[in-house]
Design a protein around this nucleic acid. Structure first.
Lengths: 245, 245
DNA sequence: AGACCTTGTTACAAAACGTTACAAACCGTT
DNA sequence: AACGGTTTGTAACGTTTTGTAACAAGGTCT
């Protein structure tokens, strides 16, 4: 957990929000952040790797738009079990699952130096009365989040370890592509353990799967750096699901 | 897929909607169906076991409130993989994951003779302008659905087969209790295969797990009939998660 | 640079779960 | 009551995944 560097953005900021679609294939659903800013006091919050935006149990006050970097979302059980349920990048909202609760139901934790824009929820609700389509956008974003979760459940329930890893890489690639980065060469922002938790595997299994994909010449992988060598191979393995490019 | 019997409701209809909370522990979030009916033309739709309310690809036109019986929700991949992502009972909404799409993204299929009330989505949106809190209720229901999915991801990612089955039984029990039925003695409405799919297991594994829980004297199980003998035992196995009574 | 710690990789053994096969119980129909 | 089809249960056997442990590669701190 390092202090924030002063040259904060290692990665370029990328496309403006206006051009960001949801991770879902539901068309262009960019959030109109400028319209929101006219009605909602937006605070920018920076986090170093390992720092949390919010934690389960803290009072729910705001949702957050990821502006830079990346975050993981974690569920935790009373008995200490822990599960990464998703990763979020620029343009994606976090904290929405806790709408309607007194307190957040999960943790959101930065994977690297990152920034979110805080959208106080009461203010967002008021802004819905002034910004056309804001309410609709939130509803759509919530529905899209459900679809995203469901499609991971489909993947977890029907694919073996190696195929899950392939599907995961394709998803990461697609998300980088959406942000205007390369889908063929990228850095995984999360540890093997985080990947493993998300994919419901052990981290050794993830390592082994990545090594095998390497051995098959589908990818070139060295620690967190991944180069996609055989996209169709990966796709075949993942069940021709995720679309990249 | 039998024709609908004329004495349709084998099970009593149970509590009125006004007293139904969401499956989530987020307080009493009953949908105000009577207020909605003043603004939305509500059609009642009955289904026999195996019949679908909607299928992936069909135009999205309405969401549905389960009035009686039970349904399963299934995701399907292009390559034929299939995954049950949830079961729905009286008082729960289905179809919301498809809000914002042209077509439904999943299937909803009756597990027994069942009935939903169809809420045409455009009319629901218009009703939001007249019925106070309806919009808020939908948002809350969407968020609760995300939380439900996430807590199953936590369970699937962190519990071994037997424990998943225990957690599943506790969830079913809690849901029956919420409807005013016994949490100690109930009939599973889904087949072993549907349970297995939902729990990301094979049906033989579910059978074995149920037999072992029987052997431990935690439950008495004969085909779909379940009697809970040792609630704390089950709870311990499931990770002290689900609360029943 | 060197020591230390975290993260990632790999080999081998063990356990969990899946596969296959078959038998029994149940359902709806005749 | 008998029939065929479906669902469920059980057991032997395989495969996949995990557990364990040792090691390697990076990063960080002094």
């Amino acid at each position: 957990m390092t202090a924030l560097a002063s040259d904060f953005h290692a990665a370029p900021v990328g496309k403006p929000y206006a051009s960001l679609a949801l991770a879902d294939h539901s068309g262009d659903m960019a959030i109109d952040i400028e319209a929101i800013r006219e009605h909602v006091p937006v605070r920018r919050c920076k986090h170093g790797a390992g720092q949390g935006v919010y934690h389960a149990g803290q009072p729910f006050q705001a949702i957050y738009l990821v502006h830079a970097g990346s975050y993981k979302v974690c569920e935790l059980a009373d008995d200490g079990r822990e599960q990464v349920t998703g990763f979020r990048m620029r343009g994606e909202l976090i904290g929405m699952e806790s709408i309607g609760l007194k307190a957040y139901s999960s943790d959101a934790i930065a994977l690297e130096d990152s920034e979110v824009w805080e959208l106080p929820y009461p203010a967002v609700l008021r802004a819905c009365l002034h910004v056309p389509d804001l309410q609709a956008h939130i509803t759509l974003a919530l529905a899209a989040e459900i679809r995203g979760d469901r499609s991971w459940m489909l993947m977890l329930g029907t694919l073996a370890a190696e195929r899950r890893v392939a599907a995961f890489l394709l998803d990461v690639a697609a998300r980088y592509a959406r942000l205007g980065y390369s889908a063929r060469h990228f850095i995984l922002r999360m540890s093997r353990m985080d990947m493993a938790s998300f994919l419901a595997l052990k981290h050794e299994t993830v390592s082994r799967a990545l090594s095998r994909l390497h051995g098959l010449n589908y990818i070139d992988v060295q620690r967190r750096e991944v180069r996609v060598l055989n996209l169709d191979g990966l796709r075949g393995m993942a069940g021709a699901s995720a679309a990249v490019n």
